[in-house]
Design a binder for these strands. Structure first.
Lengths: 132, 132
DNA sequence: CCGTATCCAATTCGATACTG
DNA sequence: CAGTATCGAATTGGATACGG
């Protein structure tokens, strides 16, 4: 696969374009949480609101609509006296689940390491760059 | 740890918190592209700029700094007459690569499906919600 | 080559209040 | 219960110009 004088850029550009397209919809701060929450099965609006738990109604609705629009979520309205709406993943979205949980797993494994890296970076930055 | 009457929310909340923490740093529109670009090996600033290709200098720098701060990127300055800076992944970041390429793969497989879902949704939305 | 600083436009987000 | 509407604050992002 290696060309004579391969530019790194060349290999990447082909992947970067679809990436940005998807990432625009998937990489939102809340999107992944929603997709994971909905993966367990049909989940109601209020359940999501409680599950994600830092999200406002507005943002939840917005993200839900966007994911539905992109064909990742199915919105089912049950015509009942207390309104009942359930969200579930489309088959397409289910395929994402593995990568998503991979991300979550990584997050859990390295959360503290990231925090430490941050602290170290900030400490170093706080030192006078001058030869004190 | 087993709950008799498990709420969907309960299972999710434990995952959602670290998720949002990571996603804040990883889920940026450009972050993933950068991480994938740097995965091939040490890559220079200008190469990244060309590879990602829709990004401005400012955004590239910002994302680079954030990723470095969180311990995902290593920034190496080669003291040369024309300045040379290379970015590479930390071991921690390399573990992310699988999930990331999973995301990219999914994107490539379903890009058109997503586009169609969008078009369909927009078309449906354009119809009068009234009983036409 | 590798950035940083500044300005300004667009977007996002949260709080709040209201509806079927 | 499941949203929508509106507003102002905060964040993000591009363009440009400049510095080591």
């Amino acid at each position: 696969m290696s060309r004579s004088h391969t530019h790194v850029a060349d290999a990447v550009r082909d992947e970067a374009c679809p990436v940005t397209e998807v990432l625009d919809r998937v990489a939102g701060k809340w999107s992944i949480g929603i997709l994971i929450a909905a993966a367990h099965g049909p989940v109601r609006f209020t359940e999501l609101e409680r599950a994600i738990n830092g999200i406002s109604r507005r943002m939840l609705t917005l993200n839900l609509r966007r994911l539905e629009r992109d064909g990742l979520l199915i919105r089912t309205v049950h015509p009942a006296v207390p309104p009942k709406v359930e969200y579930s993943l489309t088959p397409m979205a289910r395929e994402l689940h593995t990568s998503l949980t991979g991300l979550v797993g990584w997050a859990e494994r390295h959360r503290s390491a990231v925090a430490e890296a941050r602290a170290a970076y900030d400490t170093a930055a706080k030192q006078k760059p001058d030869t004190d």
